[in-house]
Amino acid sequence: MAGHLAVEDVLRPDRLRIELLDNPIIKIEDVTKIYKLGNIEVVALNNVSFTINRGEIISIMGPSGSGKSTLMNILGCLDITSAGNYYLEGLNVSAMKDNQLAEIRNKKVGFVFQTYNLLPRSTAWSNVELPLLYSNASNIKLKVSTALSQVGLTDRAHHKPTELSGGQQQRVGIARALVKNPSILLADEPTGNLDSESGNEIMKIIQNLNRETGLTVIIVTHETSIAKYTDRIISVLDGSIVSDIRQKAATVTT
């Protein structure tokens, strides 16, 4: 079983290495999600299973209504499953209460949204600081300035979102996602509202984060031009996975 090592495994380093590599950061087991709209039941996800390993960069693709948004909400612990299990770093998230989910979102998930979702009246600094305020974080100043420098926005720290370009706003969004040092980065159409140049910059930052720090990245998109920068593409249609393809990721050039 993943995550449980026997004594003999520890004594054999080669097996230990394999065990760690195979240890999935995300394990989705027969997950079904059903929405009730009045008397009608809508099956948004139907018996979906897959695993994502630590350090992978993958894209989830599918047209609107395919269930990819539902899948993203579940992966981001914003929603719970109707049936099946979701393990994030070995923790069964599908059995958790609201407050535990909030804690998981705070500690393990970094969100990047298509519409940035920054607090409009707060500065870049305050936006990045936000996740730290919902936990007993120490060294807040250091963490915020580190996250801002990771996305190259140190000099824009005290600007409000309205004073920043779309690309800069999205970089604030990424800094906010990174500040808690999450287990996974979940990006929902991160370039959807950007021109191709800014979009490329954002993809470069995300790809570099994955390659340099080994951060696990999941990008939800319907654009193949984005998906090509990931080394695995999961396609969703009508609530089921129709393909799961591994590829050699293209490197983002700007």
Binding site: G76, D98, N99, R105, K107, F111, L119, L130, Y134, K180
Partner: peptide, 9 residues
């Protein structure tokens, strides 16, 4: 946004 960032009820 606050809830997504980990704010509890």
């Amino acid at each position: 946004i606050r809830k997504a960032m980990g704010a509890t009820k």
